[in-house]
Computed example of a mutant assay.
Amino acid sequence: MALGEHLKEARDRFFIAAVAVVLGTVAGFVVYDPVLAALSRPIQDLNAREGRSAALNFDGVASPFDLMIQVSVFLGLVLSSPVWLYQLWAFITPSLKTKERRVTVAFIAVAVPLFLSGIFLAWLILPNAVRVLTDFTPGGFSNIITVTVFITFLLRLMLAFGIAFLLPVVLFGLNLVGIVSGKQILKAWRITIFLVCLFAAMAAPGADAMSMFYLAAPMLLLFFIAIGLCLLNDKRRARRNTVQQAYLEATANRASVIDGI
């Protein structure tokens, strides 16, 4: 397609994704109260189980409304993830061959569960993270926490986990369209392991190294699975190119023989 057609398609797909996010946000407004109660539960557990003095407070008149918007938009992104992930992938597929377009359904079937799994894993480690971070509070002091800062921290953490779990799928998609090869990705395995462990150490501040391991292990496993798929795809592409080159050479030789006759 021409550049103008690409831009038009990008606009249309962005519009569809935006509508899906808006509809998901409306649904987020409906379930806002129970979701907020679930997000604030780690602070409540500190008071109930460990006898601490911790409380969530709003610091402004408009803060409750701002928080409702943030949480609802986050829920909209989560609920509409099948739509905007499909639109993202469908924008790439016109450059693929017919057989390669068949992976679109497989992409959505893998990407959406991975995105939601990353968010769920972040949700599982949140109570431990809150407990460990508040352990640094000196004796005789209370934790008076601004609710907007606390909830924003939780939402960003969960979104970061979801996106992190999507990266292997994105790498395979880039390999599928020929932007990067499996060998290029494999060369960066050392820095990738370092960055994953660093991210896990900051995102899952547990009392021991096991909490970091529980987060880093699935991310590294997904990364190396993506590398394996990329290497297999590179071999398939190289084999197909070899067959096509042999066919072109045979056709050229046949044409030269006919011209000679």
Rank of each mutant, 00 (worst) to 15 (best):
V35C: 02
V35W: 07
V35G: 07
L36F: 02
A37Y: 00
A37E: 14
L39A: 07
R41T: 08
P42K: 03
I43E: 03
I43W: 01
L46V: 01
L46S: 05
N47S: 02
A48P: 02
A48N: 01
R49Y: 05
E50A: 07
G51E: 04
G51S: 03
G51M: 03
A55Y: 09
L56G: 12
N57Q: 14
F58A: 11
F58P: 09
G60L: 13
V61Y: 15
A62Y: 14
A62S: 15
S63Q: 15
P64F: 02
P64E: 03
F65W: 10
D66H: 12
M68L: 13
Q70M: 11
Q70E: 09
V71C: 04
V73G: 04
F74H: 05
L75H: 07
G76V: 07
S80E: 05
P82T: 05
V83Y: 07
L85R: 11
L85D: 03
A90W: 00
F91Y: 13
F91D: 03
I92L: 12
S95W: 02
L96N: 11
L96G: 09
K97S: 15
K97H: 14
T98P: 11
K99V: 14
K99C: 05
E100Y: 02
E100P: 01
R101P: 10
R101V: 12
R101D: 08
R102Q: 14
R102V: 13
R102N: 13
A106N: 11
A106M: 14
F107C: 04
V110F: 15
V110D: 10
A111M: 12
P113I: 07
L114P: 02
L114H: 08
L116G: 03
S117W: 10
S117I: 10
S117C: 09
G118H: 09
I119N: 03
F120E: 02
W123L: 02
L124W: 04
L124H: 10
L126I: 11
L126D: 09
N128M: 15
V130C: 09
V130R: 00
L133H: 12
L133N: 02
F136P: 10
F136W: 05
F136L: 13
T137G: 00
T137E: 08
G139Q: 06
G140L: 01
S142Y: 11
S142R: 13
N143H: 05
I144S: 09
I144P: 09
I144H: 10
I145S: 05
V147K: 13
V147S: 06
T148S: 15
T152R: 13
T152N: 14
F153V: 10
F153N: 13
L154A: 08
L154G: 04
L154F: 11
L155C: 02
L155S: 03
M158P: 08
L159W: 08
A160M: 11
F161S: 05
I163M: 10
I163E: 11
I163L: 12
A164T: 06
F165L: 07
F165K: 00
L166H: 01
L166Y: 04
L166C: 06
L166M: 08
L166T: 06
